[in-house]
Design a binder for these strands. Structure first.
Length: 106
DNA sequence: CGATTGACGCAGA
DNA sequence: ATCTGCGCCAATC
């Protein structure tokens, strides 16, 4: 059975480099419009178990919210390495880098 | 099986 | 514009 987690994971892994997605978007694509927190918890717990590009996941403001200092530093570095430009305030241009499959699946 | 967790999102002040 | 609080839902422990 594909759990919400597995679905979310699939979506996350489907995000191309240089793009990012918000927790809310993933949750919506996974079938739970309000399940943003599940995505968060999912990454927190499963990122070590699954080879998820968790660094492509940011909050709705396109900002890194990680609780771990090293984690946020890593994410920031990885995103820049993929070509994602981050503002001085550490915010990402979601309008540019947001991966929106909803538009692709007519 | 029951309670806790959780890297969010949004509304209200 | 910033800050606080509440809700949400499913997996994990």
């Amino acid at each position: 059975m594909q759990t919400f987690t597995e679905t979310a994971i699939t979506i996350i892994r489907n995000v191309p480099p240089g793009k990012v997605m918000t927790y809310g978007q993933i949750a919506r694509q996974a079938g739970s419009p309000r399940g943003a927190r599940q995505v968060a918890r999912l990454l927190h717990s499963m990122s070590s178990k699954y080879d998820l590009p968790w660094h492509r996941i940011v909050n709705a403001q396109g900002k890194i919210v990680l609780s771990d200092e090293e984690g946020r530093y890593t994410q920031h570095a990885l995103l820049e390495a993929e070509g994602v430009k981050i503002g001085l305030n550490g915010q990402i241009d979601l309008e540019i880098y947001r991966y929106n499959p909803d538009e692709l699946r007519s």
